[in-house]
Amino acid sequence: MGNKGGSNVTLVNVDKLPGLNTLGISLARLDYTPSSLNPPHTHPRGTELLVVIEGTLLVGFVTSNPNKLFTKVLNKVDVFVFPVGLIHFQFNIGKTNALAFASLSS
């Protein structure tokens, strides 16, 4: 599904890949145009593992109690974990398209 931020998320879950049934995981392909954003969102039931395939992403999440923002610039082959339930985002800070794959534990 696309969004106004210029990124596109293609989900792969048990509905599209029945072999995932009962494994407790799902996958997503994330495509970003330059300066595009996958806006702040949460996954209340699962941790997300993000792997950058192409491009450069600024990623981050916000903890609660106390509220603290953690960010990191990721390049090709970098991996990042977004803990379950925390607000997080990805932003393509590069001048080219970016591609990443995410795995979710729910």
Results as ranks from 00 to 15, higher is better:
21 N>F: 11
44 P>R: 05
64 S>L: 14
61 F>W: 11
5 G>W: 00
7 S>K: 10
51 V>C: 10
96 T>R: 13
106 S>I: 05
96 T>C: 07
59 V>Q: 02
68 K>N: 13
65 N>S: 15
11 L>M: 14
66 P>C: 09
89 F>I: 08
46 G>M: 00
27 L>E: 03
62 V>M: 11
34 P>Q: 11
100 A>N: 04
65 N>L: 10
42 T>Y: 00
66 P>W: 05
90 Q>A: 12
67 N>Q: 15
11 L>T: 06
85 G>C: 11
80 F>G: 02
72 K>S: 12
32 Y>L: 07
76 K>P: 01
76 K>T: 11
87 I>W: 09
15 D>G: 09
50 L>V: 03
92 N>E: 02
99 L>T: 12
30 L>E: 00
62 V>F: 12
103 S>A: 14
46 G>H: 00
35 S>P: 03
38 N>M: 07
40 P>C: 00
44 P>F: 06
104 L>N: 06
87 I>C: 02
2 G>F: 10
63 T>W: 03
73 V>R: 09
93 I>Y: 04
63 T>M: 10
43 H>I: 03
101 F>K: 03
96 T>A: 14
38 N>E: 09
24 G>F: 05
1 M>R: 13
5 G>T: 02
41 H>G: 00
22 T>M: 06
1 M>Q: 13
100 A>Q: 00
26 S>G: 15
58 L>P: 02
52 V>W: 03
6 G>E: 03
105 S>P: 09
101 F>C: 09
43 H>P: 05
56 T>I: 12
74 L>F: 07
95 K>G: 05
37 L>H: 10
74 L>E: 01
87 I>Y: 09
15 D>I: 02
5 G>N: 01
82 F>L: 00
71 T>E: 10
86 L>E: 10
7 S>R: 07
45 R>V: 03
79 V>C: 12
14 V>L: 04
62 V>H: 04
